[in-house]
Design a protein around this nucleic acid. Structure first.
Lengths: 128, 128
DNA sequence: CCGTATCCCTCCGGATACTG
DNA sequence: CAGTATCCGGAGGGATACGG
């Protein structure tokens, strides 16, 4: 492959390392990306979101949204009517996150066949 | 922002969804990216790698490397000498993965200040 | 040197029930 | 409707000891 492979800054400050792996762990989270993807199509209310995600528990949706709100990715708007109404929407930062996440998603889709066959080969050779 | 919402990109094939979130979860894994980053600088032996990563247990290094090998990201080469020697190196696929991962890492570095201040604001308002 | 096998404890996350 | 509170099973992952 290209000789100009990016030289890796293994010596980045550990503070950066923590912060970066922190973001990465959110992307790897079971629900976060799914929620952000859906909010990427437009604002949504709590139970609406719950239905759109499908399979998420109330607890985890709350937790996920709180984290995203805390990180400034999601804006929470409360309308104090009866019954109460709460809207969630992505902030600019949240929408921004979708760019690199989609890049990763595209890579995954483009290479899932290779990965799948690699796994088959590996598991096959593990017959013992 | 968007037009109306009857369009649901959420309905992509669930097979794709599983596979993609599977890759994402590996990226979010505590050790995987770190190991891949280091292997991105060149091949390495087991304990050498262990020292370079720092803080990883023998068990988790083995587990991480096995997963990566199974997925076709890492090639494992055994030299049956005494003492035995095992080298690990990235495959083309593994090096390829680094591209979108670095994009995400760059985004994280570029935005960690915003996130950090968002958190401060959030936690501050949580004083009650 | 390069692992595998156990033990064990923490935390994630689902189910359920209750409030404003 | 939009949460909070509680219980609890199971996976993740560290420490340690042993095998090739």
């Amino acid at each position: 492959m290209t000789d100009s492979h990016p030289r890796l800054p293994v010596e980045v400050e550990s503070a950066d390392c923590r912060a970066i792996s922190d973001i990465l762990s959110r992307v790897g989270d079971k629900w976060t990306v799914l929620v952000v993807e859906i909010l990427g199509t437009g604002p949504s209310r709590f139970n609406e979101l719950r239905r759109q995600v499908g399979g998420i528990s109330q607890k985890m949706l709350t937790t996920t949204l709180r984290q995203l709100e805390r990180d400034g990715m999601v804006r929470r708007t409360v309308t104090a009517t009866i019954p109460p109404r709460v809207d969630y929407e992505l902030t600019d930062l949240g929408r921004d996150l979708l760019v690199p996440v989609h890049a990763l998603g595209d890579w995954a889709r483009a290479n899932m066949a290779k990965i799948e066959s690699a796994r088959l080969r590996f598991d096959e050779e593990a017959e013992s």
